[in-house]
């Protein structure tokens, strides 16, 4: 791999993040929504408290946040603070910063989504590989269509049905939250706590897995079907190799590459992939934070979450591009 490619790829990442930051800067200003005024309006709606000197208070806050400066100066300030990793302060939990709130919610999301993404990848790829293999029983081949239909249904909806049937009617698992709030005051490091979190996480995880396993199965089956026709698979069969050996080392080994790429990309979107499901289960991750921010008109938190999801996806896309030649020796970027 040439250094020039590395540099170009990195510049593209910078460009993506810069574009995203610019869009995030201009959307609220184009819409002429005043976040501070909206926040006060929300406070008034929910608590009935209306400050007497509202206009002056808003002005004072605008000066404090630099919202009264010329647009170009605001833009430069904003870019500077984004570069320093400062995403501003939260309006709903003032004076806590956006970065503070996000870093509190992020571990929940990252752990839940990492586990579900890996499980979905393994289950889906396994089913897909078997479904594309000519010697599989027909019921395995027939599994792909129902799974694919399931993949079209939003995870939120599956979660809703799971809550109703498993948590509410059958009372097998807790309805919501990430741990039993009466038993634990907050996150702690004990076997009890981890088991409790595990029990709470089963349903959110199950909704996420059911909703995307079909996508992986379909992708793997599609690749598997192409690989079957390749000369090297025919050759292996005619050599009289054992079926198991052909399955793992000729068929799966060659068909799995695009799946691995997709896995890396899926890891990039773990911040945003569970937003709706987290919300449904009141799981204290990024999704619930985002929902709270939307309800409270806390625009700075909304934009902060937007920023980190975009950076996560951008970075993972770059890593995929850089790792791909290592995984697939047929790909070389320096060849003209």
């Amino acid at each position: 791999m040439k250094i020039s490619y590395l540099v170009r790829r990195f510049l593209f990442l910078v460009f993506v993040v810069w574009t995203a930051a610019t869009v995030l800067f201009f959307i609220p200003r184009l819409s002429r929504v005043n976040p501070i005024r909206e926040r006060f309006a929300e406070i008034q709606r929910s608590t009935g408290y209306a400050p007497r000197d509202l206009e002056n208070i808003i002005k004072a806050f605008e000066t404090k946040f630099g919202l009264d400066k010329p647009l170009i100066e605001q833009y430069l300030d904003y870019m500077g603070s984004v570069l320093r990793g400062d995403l501003g302060v939260s309006l709903m939990r003032y004076p806590r910063t956006v970065v503070d709130l996000i870093s509190q919610a992020l571990p929940w999301t990252v752990i839940l989504l990492t586990v579900t993404t890996l499980l979905t990848f393994l289950i889906g790829t396994g089913i897909g590989a078997l479904a594309g293999w000519p010697r599989s029983p027909s019921w395995v081949k027939g599994m792909v269509t129902p799974l694919m239909v399931l993949a079209a249904v939003p995870a939120y909806l599956l979660g809703l049905l799971l809550i109703y049937f498993i948590a509410f009617r059958a009372k097998l698992l807790p309805l919501s939250g990430a741990y039993t709030t009466g038993r634990f005051l907050g996150p702690e490091l004990s076997i009890d706590f981890i088991l409790d979190v595990g029990r709470h996480a089963i349903l959110p995880a199950l909704s996420l897995i059911l909703a995307s396993v079909g996508f992986w199965a379909l992708g793997m089956r599609g690749m598997g079907v192409t690989v079957q026709g390749e000369d090297y698979v025919n050759f292996a069969e005619h050599k009289g190799l054992k079926q198991g050996r052909i399955f793992y080392w000729y068929y799966v080994r060659n068909a799995i590459l695009p799946q691995v790429t997709a896995l890396a990309l899926a890891f990039g979107s773990i911040v945003s992939a569970g937003i709706l499901v987290e919300n449904l289960y009141g799981f204290p991750g990024i999704g619930s934070l985002l929902n709270a921010a939307i309800l409270a008109n806390d625009f700075f938190v909304i934009y902060g979450i937007g920023m980190i999801t975009i950076v996560a996806v951008g970075v993972s896309m770059m890593l995929v591009d850089l790792l791909y030649p290592l995984l697939d020796p047929r790909i070389r970027y320096d060849r003209k």
Binding site: A20, I27, S31, S272, I294, F299, G306, T309, V313, M317
Partner: peptide, 16 residues
């Protein structure tokens, strides 16, 4: 690169 839901949330949230 931009997760669709995020961008749409940001745009939709400007309509108060």
């Amino acid at each position: 690169t931009i997760p669709p839901l995020i961008l749409q949330i940001i745009i939709a949230s400007t309509i108060v």
